[in-house]
């Protein structure tokens, strides 16, 4: 709560500005974007993310991991992990984004800081194939029981092809795209225009 260099965070008029300033002071000049009054996005390099999170967790009011998810930047050859960390007392959230190498797809686990991260990490592991060494339930099925294909949330996973291959359709309907099907059945003028 109380940072010896800066005084109490609660007193500052704009907590978002203040916390970003402190992170900059302490860890370096990360690009920040003030998306809303209570939401700041910070792009953190991979090597700094754990120190920043630990510091936030232990020495600031940002004690709650609200969400952890991933985005597949296929074109950049990168994954992006997004940690949404909230200060519940101040109602301000920090959105920390980390880019990972897509080929390696490995990140450090934060379940030591937040126990609930275990489930998020399990899910990301299952859906994106990003590995978190040391996180307890890695590789344990979460939603996909007996999944043998590529992790389905990777953008190079062809959902439609998989779907056609695995889940048979009811005979009598030639096209699965309802826009096309309805257009053909009721004429182009029907619902489309």
């Amino acid at each position: 709560m109380f940072d010896i260099n800066h005084g109490n965070l609660d007193d500052s008029p704009d907590v978002g500005q203040e916390i970003v300033r402190r992170i900059h002071d302490r860890f370096g000049d990360f690009p920040a974007r003030f998306q809303k009054a209570d939401l700041v996005r910070l792009d953190v390099p991979q090597k700094d993310i754990i120190p920043v999170l630990s510091w936030l967790r232990t020495e600031t009011p940002f004690v709650q991991l609200t969400h952890l998810t991933a985005v597949d930047w296929l074109e950049d050859g990168q994954f992006e992990l997004m940690y949404l960390v909230t200060a519940p007392d101040l109602m301000v959230s920090l959105h920390l984004c980390v880019r990972l190498d897509r080929a390696k797809a490995e990140a450090e686990s934060v379940f030591n800081l937040w126990l609930q991260a275990e489930t998020y990490e399990q899910e990301i592991n299952e859906m994106f194939g990003i590995h978190f060494p040391g996180s307890p339930r890695q590789g344990v099925p979460f939603i996909l029981e007996g999944w043998r294909d590529m992790p389905p949330m990777r953008r190079d996973f062809d959902t439609v092809a998989y779907c056609d291959r695995t889940h048979p359709v009811r005979p009598g309907r030639e096209h699965q795209d309802s826009r096309v099907y309805v257009g053909r059945k009721f004429g182009e003028k029907g619902y489309l225009k």
Binding site: T159, C163, T166, H167, P168, Q176
Partner: peptide, 19 residues
């Protein structure tokens, strides 16, 4: 349950229940 409905392209949802 009949034809997958809005889940017609879901990788994890069956489309024809009576199978």
């Amino acid at each position: 349950t009949i034809n997958g409905g809005m889940y017609w392209d879901s990788y994890n949802t069956i489309k024809v229940l009576d199978l």
